[in-house]
Design a binder for these strands. Structure first.
Lengths: 202, 202
DNA sequence: GTCTATAACCCGATAGAC
DNA sequence: GTCTATCGGGTTATAGAC
């Protein structure tokens, strides 16, 4: 069995994702981790420290927890972009459209977060964006010259976050699928332009 | 001076936007509306009823509160799409990037909202999407034949919501501007394709 | 309609035994 | 390291005077 501290972090990660930060109580985190409310304070002096540990866990685990499952069997870098989006669609379907991106939900739930919390949220978004940017870098020869791959990576993330938000709120995957179709249309146009550009590329 | 009920709704609207639903107390709403905490319960039996009134206010006021200021002096329907996004960018700048879309924030803060709350949140997203869809409808002759204008309208909303989320979290307009540039690039390609399509349109 | 006072409850955090 | 017990403070909502 994992260490008590680990069990507490995992329990908090689950509860924050499913019910939010403010709604989750220290007692619930303890119960979920088979520990007592008071014991939580041996490892974490404040509730916010648990949140920081959870955000670190997401950040450190992005490969193993998110990218690896989403990209299993998908080698093409452009298809990886859409495989990641498809992974989120799967999470929506699994949950009956109750799923929300844990980082996005925390980012909007906490209106005036402590700077250290806000920076860890931003670091998680940054790691996600970089993963997409790496895909676009791999596929650079198939994309138009002069394309700003950073802009496009951010655009993929805003699409995912907005699409999950709308799907969750309407309890339907329809808006998610609509946004992804529109993004795919954009990518198709980018790939088509690059393929007719031809000639020397560097 | 506005009626007490109106002042309460406006106060709640402001406080929910700035500090969130759960963080805002009934006492604060009363204080902000120059009424007493106990008086709030004369008009609203529960806190959730205040939230419902706020969501109705947003929905009924979308023209006056949002679209009219954003579209002042902008006639072109495509430019109206980007003027609305530019309006949100202005709100970000004004607030030092603390701004969040009030509907989006509530949608992610409340993880298991009462169905009636969730439906009013969804109705607000739907009204926003329809406003964009109307612009695209006006500009239909300049857009590619067979373009799914509903998909594209949803895409504009997901871009706005995602972009505001990232800007707020990083306390920078950079990701907002990146996402809007990428969306503009997409629109440019759509308009270019339609202009070279030429011939008969209907 | 508006006010004061308070009931009833829950939470984060602490103290201290073992 | 883990437990029980509890403090102190804040919240929604109610009761009832005016």
């Amino acid at each position: 069995m994992a260490s008590t501290r680990d069990r507490l972090v995992i329990a908090a990660l689950r509860l924050f994702a499913e019910r939010g930060y403010q709604t989750t109580t220290i007692a619930e985190i303890g119960r979920e981790a088979q520990a007592n409310a008071g014991s939580v304070y041996f490892f974490f002096p404040t509730k916010q420290q648990i949140l920081l540990a959870v955000l670190d866990r997401y950040h450190d685990g992005i490969e193993e927890m998110l990218l690896a499952p989403a990209w299993a069997g998908v080698g093409d870098p452009i298809e990886r972009v859409f495989a990641l989006l498809e992974h989120y669609r799967g999470l929506l379907v699994e949950s009956g459209c109750a799923y929300g991106c844990p980082i996005g939900s925390l980012a909007l739930e906490l209106h005036e977060p402590d700077p250290v919390v806000r920076e860890k949220l931003a670091a998680n978004f940054e790691a996600w964006t970089r993963a997409i940017e790496a895909c676009l870098g791999e596929a650079r020869e198939r994309l138009p010259q002069g394309l700003d791959r950073r802009d496009l990576s951010v655009f993929v993330l805003t699409t995912m976050e907005g699409a999950v938000m709308l799907a969750r709120t309407s309890r339907s995957t329809a808006p998610f699928e609509a946004a992804v179709r529109a993004l795919r249309d954009h990518f198709d146009r980018l790939l088509r332009e690059a393929s007719t550009q031809g000639g020397e590329r560097r």
